[in-house]
């Protein structure tokens, strides 16, 4: 069992979920309330990771982080080393890869807040920001939890993007899914099985707990 990979994967998934709460909420707010006529283009871009093969996405992220891109050059001038094949690199790749899994539930829950409450809030003197903080966010907690849980789970099981951007460096970029792949390549099926079961158990437990706490929106949950 590759405990190092497990710890690294958990760390990565938690950071991705946290980052997406910070980045995804403003994006989802904009998507929900913007009246810009070309908004659908941005929505399509946000949804791209759902359909794009992870290797393609990973390839572009790798190029963007590499020493020949403006972002890569800037990062190297700042820190002295490239983002490619680092933990920060796979974190960036994973955040992009999981973006739609956070933004879409966020946006759906914002849109579900009764518009009349927003009008009421404005006639009571609250600014848009204040309305967002005092009305929209508290009423969107289930959607925020769902988005964070989905991006966490999605990152736990991620393979292609991490491999393309991070390679397979033990302790740095080797996640559980890559570890399983390595074990299978080495014909070490017992270890692969063990790791897979651990990944399965952790993922299921976490999702069950989160959806259980959040069960109002999941009609299939067994008890109320």
């Amino acid at each position: 069992m590759d405990w190092q990979a497990l710890w690294l994967t958990l760390r990565l998934a938690i950071l991705v979920a946290a980052a997406l709460l910070v980045i995804g909420v403003p994006i989802a707010y904009w998507i929900t309330y913007s009246r810009w006529r070309w908004k659908f283009l941005i929505e399509a871009v946000v949804a791209l990771p759902v359909v794009l093969p992870p290797t393609v996405l990973g390839f572009y992220v790798l190029v963007a982080l590499g020493p020949k891109s403006p972002l890569g050059t800037w990062w190297i001038s700042l820190t002295g080393h490239s983002l490619a094949f680092t933990f920060q690199g796979i974190l960036i790749g994973s955040v992009i890869y999981s973006l739609p899994f956070a933004v879409q539930p966020f946006a759906a829950s914002f849109a579900a807040v009764d518009e009349r409450l927003l009008v009421a809030s404005s006639t009571l003197g609250a600014s848009s920001l204040s309305t967002f903080r005092r009305v929209i966010l508290p009423l969107s907690v289930p959607g925020l939890v769902t988005g964070a849980a989905l991006s966490f789970a999605h990152t736990m099981g991620e393979f292609g993007v991490v491999l393309m951007v991070g390679g397979d460096i033990p302790g740095l970029t080797r996640t559980l899914s890559i570890s399983v792949y390595d074990q299978v390549q080495a014909l070490n099926y017992a270890a692969a099985n063990y790791t897979s079961v651990v990944l399965l158990a952790i993922s299921f437990t976490l999702l069950a707990v989160i959806y259980g706490l959040n069960r109002r929106i999941w009609a299939v949950w067994p008890w109320k």
Binding site: V119, A120, S122, T123, L124, G125, A126
Partner: peptide, 30 residues
């Protein structure tokens, strides 16, 4: 002038009370 600054109290047909806030917090909202 935007609604926030008109100082007009508006009671809606469907009331639009904030479901997540207590009666006291609803009243203190504005």
């Amino acid at each position: 002038i935007p609604p926030q600054q008109r100082g007009v109290g508006y009671v809606f047909q469907d009331l639009a009370l904030f479901p997540h806030l207590s009666v006291e917090k609803n009243i203190a909202y504005g």
